[in-house]
Amino acid sequence: MEFIDIVLSISDGVLFGTTYALIGIGFTMIFGVMHKINLAYAATSIGGAYVSWAISTLVPLPAILVFLISAIAAGVIGWLVYLCCFRLVPLDTPLTTLLATVGMLIFIDEVVVHETDGMPQPYPAIFDDVFFEFGEFGLRGDLLFIFVLSFAAMLVLLYLLYRTRLGIATRAVAQQPMAAQLCGISIERTNASTFVITGMLGGLAGAMIGASVGVLSPLLTLPVTVKGLIVTVIGGLGSIPGAIIAGLMVGAFENLFLALRGVTERDMYVMLLLFLFLTFRPGGLFHRSALRD
């Protein structure tokens, strides 16, 4: 293994890791606002990507529009998940919403399998023929585009959270729902908007995963769920910067061990990384001490 190969696999991994970061942000935000786990979140993302794929087979569209449609569709699916699994279910029993989201995960997955007969479908990529070379070092154009787009999405999210009234309301509900309600903030509306916003982020991530892998498959849902959860924990629950850095880390780590140990053992090392964090730094990278469980 040449040194340059290691550098290349790490840099590719960091670029792809932005999609994990987006999924991780989604899990973290929903947890931050509602203190509930939404296991259907990765299914929402992949579902959004599938809707955009279905539309692109009907009408030929430029790839960037396909990405946008994916984000919007996943936003709608995210709202539906909120409605079915959180709005209409009593929130005092945490297990109930957990199982409801599992049911939703299975449901979304099976809708996809039903519509595509479980076959992987080709997904349009952007700049997949571009390759930037700097001497020995090089970067894949499509991955670079994913990286830039993800960071743009994160900046928009941070602007939304810290510079708009919606963001203030969201952060207020996350900090102290009762006090937020006394200030006249509708908790239900805020929760719903969180699901729509995170759904849109997830849809973008789902589209980019599809674009960089080249195909969409219902088999993607479970691995993306697991990776997203790992990113959430490594980054520290409820921490958006943590999720971003952990996403890049997990991406790099995964790709490095893909190059070193092959595809069958790759994920074992990601799990080991997680266990190292749980043992030595259970709060994650960006630990917030006074966090309600």
């Binding site: 947890f31 786990i37 945490p94 957990l98 697991v226 959860l229 790992i230 959430t232 924990v233 629950l237 069958t264 053992e265 994920d267 074992m268 799990m271 080991l272 997680l274 266990f275 749980l278 043992t279 259970p282 469980d293």
Partner: peptide, 26 residues
């Protein structure tokens, strides 16, 4: 180590453990 954490963290830790065992047999 796993039960030092709870809630979402435990879900993730146990998920990771289950996947680890599956990959071990793989």
């Amino acid at each position: 180590p796993a039960l030092r954490v709870k809630g979402l963290m435990l879900v993730v830790a146990t998920t990771a453990f289950g996947e680890f065992v599956r990959l071990f047999w793989f």
